[in-house]
Design a binder for these strands. Structure first.
Lengths: 345, 345
DNA sequence: CTTAGCACTTGATTAGTTTGAGTGCTAAAA
DNA sequence: TTTTAGCACTCAAACTAATCAAGTGCTAAG
């Protein structure tokens, strides 16, 4: 259990360190703190905090920096989200104010805004009814040998892919396949579709197509994309700013992660109602040891729930970041509601 | 004019420096060279080469490194492409051996292969009949409020985009628009289409749609994508390996460039029949000062001409890289011919 | 419980040395 | 005229003290 004063000191340590990046010593604290105590007293308290594992030294005679647990305690008990700066409000309003014709444009734009506001890397996920279902499938012949496959889900996602077919495939065959898929698969959730696609469908489809493999590849491709490709990332390059003494390898693995949607999903984790902060070692991914992740969900009424997130150095100004994320989730939800309202009625 | 011996020495300087990265001195050269002369003689020759601006010192008593002009002379007169390593041949064969259903898959895969072989960043452009023309346009209603726009060019490129429309737009209106576009624009080159789109079309389209602006935005969007989005990039992350003492800013501007297709097109420049090498300062782009770019075209008979390129440090082993690029362009052309042969007949 | 005082630790910075690879130049040899 | 041995000189890099500043823990007194 921490005393009032210890909390005050821990808060000051975190704030000072996240601002300056320099380990903070007893004298600095004595000057900053509102109460009037000597540096020796602070030293005693610091020793106590270190005892509890909340702060640590970089070397035996250095100032203190927060430990992972220290950050945890800070965000759980001590931090208060900053109100937005007027300037930030302007940025949000003007960037999100325009006219959009696609949900995805709003979401991807959001990732950019969020990364600009924070100067970190931002993620956005579009709102989603959970367990969205396949609601339609089409094959559209485009030229002598190109066909486009389009897949629509009941949550309004559209995925498509063009591929080349051997001349021998006729329009009727394509139509038969489309009918088959619409009959058998529409209404199922995407994972169910994927499963079925590997089991009974190939046999049936073989009646219409001589070599169904290629076709099934395509369909599976489109399908997995629809199931996964829901992330937008903004400010990728901002990761470079925190490249610890240019550790190229870990940077590479970070960037590799950003390109694998599975991994991102893993990292972002399950949505929870609150704004959640995960700190360095609390994440399974090793490359994220020196990073913190702030995630928040947003609700668009019956249109489901989405997610926004920012990834920055563990040493980030949490109060400001929490303020931004908190405010932005509201703005985004509002914007999306407007959007749906316009196109729905 | 260079003597035989000076050429031999310049070649050795470039080879040694590109291999080791260390400025090379007279003693080292004396040991490596096939002729038997003393280091003092070499020193005299080095002074002569420096006189001509082909090599330079990093400081007054250092060994020599090639200057921009030195590299230029080397690739123009002295280098001979290395034959491929057996291992490299395997990599190409196996990576390009599979079955593909889209040109774009082959091209994008090629960028990956090329970056793996070289451990640099690779670019690939798909073959293209110059001045490809719009050959078809469709609007496909997908749900109550979603429409997909598809655009096909006579070179087989397909671009599409989904957008949301206000309920008020009816199927007939859409069809009217499609008819209009197919009547007026099909057969024109893409730049012509873009131009016309800004002039007379808006008036006519206003007959069918109440607010044509949004729609025209979309169309223009798809169109510019079709005109531009022909590049694939492989091994982006390899740029990190050469981050000179972690100069974050120039790295950032490099990566920003990779995301702007216009810039890439600028940098790659016009196709020429030969394999071309551009060295650091020869490129207009300032961020590329320490890089070299090797570009090569490949021909797929009547299907047009494409391009491959690799971007690496000025200090790259040119003989090996030229070997790889030279061999790969052939393999790629062969593969594409096979592909077209299969789908064409 | 707080605080002044003090001895001690440590990373950073600076200046001075040494080392080694390399150069240019001169004068003799080929 | 070209080549070469020899030598003085240069410079970055690596190493060594020496000093500094910020900070700590501990003790003993308030």
């Amino acid at each position: 259990m921490l005393s009032e004063r210890q909390m005050m000191i821990l808060r000051a340590v975190v704030r000072d360190f996240t601002n300056t990046g320099v380990p903070v010593g007893s004298k600095t604290l004595a000057k900053q703190l509102p109460i009037h105590v000597s540096s020796a007293t602070i030293r005693n308290e610091l020793a106590a905090l270190e005892e509890q594992g909340l702060i640590e030294k970089t070397h035996s005679s250095s100032g203190r920096i927060p430990s992972g647990e220290g950050y945890r305690y800070y965000v759980d008990h001590l931090v208060k989200p900053d109100p937005l700066r007027p300037n930030d409000i302007d940025v949000i309003q003007s960037s999100l104010g325009g006219d959009f014709h696609k949900i995805d444009e709003i979401i991807s734009q959001s990732a950019t805004i969020l990364s600009n506001l924070t100067s970190y890397t931002a993620f956005t996920l579009k709102p989603e009814l959970k367990d969205s279902r396949l609601s339609g499938f089409r094959l559209i012949p485009l030229g002598k040998r190109q066909v486009m496959a389009i897949l629509v889900t009941d949550s309004g996602d559209v995925e498509n892919q063009t591929f080349d077919v051997n001349e021998k495939v006729t329009g009727e065959q394509l139509e038969a396949v489309v009918r088959l898929i619409n009959d058998q698969l529409v209404g199922l959730t995407l994972p169910e579709v994927l499963k079925k696609l590997q089991q009974d469908i190939p046999l049936k489809i073989a009646n219409y197509l001589q070599s169904p493999e290629g076709f099934l590849d395509i369909f599976g491709d489109v399908l997995t994309r629809a199931a996964q490709e829901r992330f937008y990332v903004g400010g990728r390059l901002n990761l470079l700013n925190f490249s610890q003494d240019s550790d190229v390898d870990s940077l590479k693995s970070l960037y590799a992660m950003l390109d694998k949607t599975d991994d991102i999903a893993d990292v972002l984790g399950q949505p929870s109602d609150k704004i959640s902060v995960r700190i360095g070692n609390e994440m399974t991914n090793d490359a994220l040891r020196n990073f913190s992740l702030i995630t928040a969900t947003y609700d668009v009424d019956q249109h489901g729930q989405g997610m926004i997130a920012i990834l920055g150095p563990t040493r980030m100004p949490y109060s400001r970041m929490l303020g931004i994320v908190g405010a932005f989730r509201e703005e985004l939800a509002k914007k999306l509601l407007d959007y749906y309202r316009f196109y729905d009625e």
